[in-house]
């Protein structure tokens, strides 16, 4: 019980770093100590769930690859804010095909 309490009230992530990131947001003026702690905890939960969900969706249960993450970020609505951070990788050939397709469409219109 004591151990559980301990893990609940301590944050593994360095709160000073979390604070630096939060303060880099332009409109933020003050952050209460409790809010900072909760933000750190929430990030911890977020990392855990992102890793777990990605592994669940992964075809290979023995390893977690970038493409698994990209797939999850692309398919889950709540993770849409990460789409620019974890984009799906495409080959150069696919890219050029996309580019060509776009150009064709432009010409048609």
């Amino acid at each position: 019980m004591a151990d559980k309490d301990e893990s609940l009230q301590t944050c593994t992530l360095p709160l000073s770093r979390v604070k630096t990131i939060m303060k880099s947001s332009p409109d933020v003026s003050c952050i209460s100590q409790e809010a900072l702690f909760l933000a750190g905890k929430a990030t911890e939960l977020f990392i855990q769930s992102l890793a777990q969900v990605s592994l669940e969706k992964s075809t290979d249960k023995k390893s977690l690859q970038y493409r698994d993450l990209a797939e999850v970020v692309n398919s889950i609505d709540t993770l849409q804010f990460l789409q620019d951070i974890v984009p799906k990788k495409i080959t150069a050939r696919e890219f050029f095909e996309m580019l060509k397709q776009n150009e064709d469409e432009d010409e048609e219109t």
């Binding site: 593994t12 992530l13 979390v18 990131i21 939060m22 880099s24 947001s25 933000a39 929430a42 990030t43 911890e44 977020f46 990392i47 855990q48 769930s49 992102l50 890793a51 777990q52 990605s54 592994l55 249960k61 023995k62 390893s63 977690l64 690859q65 970038y66 698994d68 993450l69 990209a70 970020v73 804010f81 990460l82 951070i85 974890v86």
Partner: peptide, 29 residues
């Protein structure tokens, strides 16, 4: 944190770790 969240013996690629780390920073923001 990732290691604690997933079963033992699962390999997490370096790229995946970096992506999760960046995602976490963006999540904070």
């Amino acid at each position: 944190i990732i290691k604690d969240a997933i079963p033992d013996g699962v390999n997490v690629s370096k790229e995946a770790r970096l992506a999760i780390s960046k995602a976490a920073s963006v999540f904070v923001l």
